[in-house]
Nucleic acid binder design. Sequence first.
DNA 1: TTCACTTTTGAACGAATGTTCTATTGCGAG
DNA 2: CTCGCAATAGAACATTCGTTCAAAAGTGAA
Lengths: 196, 196
Amino acid sequence: MNKRHYNSEETRQIIAEKAAKLFAQKGFAGTSIADISRESGFSKGHIYYHFENKEKLFLHLSLETMRHWGEKWQAIAGSYPTSTQKLYGMAHFVMNNYKTPLLPVGQELAMNPNTSPETLQALQGLAATPMAAYSAIFHEGVERGEFDIENVEETTLLFGSWMGTLCQFTLTMEGEPLQRLFQQAVTIFVGGIRKR
Amino acid sequence: MNKRHYNSEETRQIIAEKAAKLFAQKGFAGTSIADISRESGFSKGHIYYHFENKEKLFLHLSLETMRHWGEKWQAIAGSYPTSTQKLYGMAHFVMNNYKTPLLPVGQELAMNPNTSPETLQALQGLAATPMAAYSAIFHEGVERGEFDIENVEETTLLFGSWMGTLCQFTLTMEGEPLQRLFQQAVTIFVGGIRKR
DNA sequence: TTCACTTTTGAACGAATGTTCTATTGCGAG
DNA sequence: CTCGCAATAGAACATTCGTTCAAAAGTGAA
């Protein structure tokens, strides 16, 4: 009856994935529907069969990505014995799971005066997911006596923005050097907030 | 003889400044010549009187900005007694002197496959200026026994990328909160690399 | 095999974009 | 005063963009 026919849902997924890759690489304005069409192998018109418009397409895929991200992190967050280890775990997780660093692209959209207000509001939720996860770690670390933090909110912002840019290196680096970069960042950060 | 007439050089400067502001706010692809024309108050055609094309315009103003930045830093770099203080000074300097965070825009251009090879090569030099300045501080800090750093190059990259994103906050924050953010970042960073 | 309906295409359109070109303005030397 | 040339404007152009639309193809049920 209202079962899905053909592989339409799969198609939608392919388009979303390729679009995410392109958005992350070339930005929102820099990525055209023609680009997405070429990369995904489906016609330009067909993209509009699945998504209302370019803005909605970006919104859908970025929010979906973040939702997955949050769920996946929640599933493993409990497995770290200390807050410090949890922070290392988070960096590792971020590196492997924001395959496509969409957050800066969301910022780009948010900055543009032509962006519709509804989109703008929806974008608010984009950064909120990872920020909440970071914040939880820092709060826990303070309570456990591991961290010495004056202003947790500010610290969260600092850590979040740092992770955000490091994510962009996933587009140009890989393997061990990339891993060391993330690890070293956490080592420095922890060194700066560790209780002594 | 070949003296400048009218206020042409000044006009060129105005266009460059307004363009820098727009590029920083809306990115390279997101900023149109029409935008720059509107903001600067000069006609679209006149922009092409001063600059060969959009790419060259961006290149000129970003390299020029960086050149100024580097010179200005060199002038005050010697006035800090310790490397730690120099790092704080750098953060303060970055906050006040990259009025317009053009580095991410340079990255955007560099990522785009349509960007000409010459432009690409010129862009290499963009990040090089601040990175060299950061690197010098870390090297000095190690020599003076202030910092304990395994890999100075990696540390430079980490500090540079962090400063880069923090710069974007200059577009949405100001005054004391902004200043505290930069300061706190350095405090954390120094805490992580300080010799103990 | 037919038929209704979902999926997919590709042509078409208006708006916007980067760029070029021609015309106009206005300074300053003579 | 006037004439040449730098400075500026704005129309015009080709291209690309996001989006729409009508038609074609493919699918599964009957």
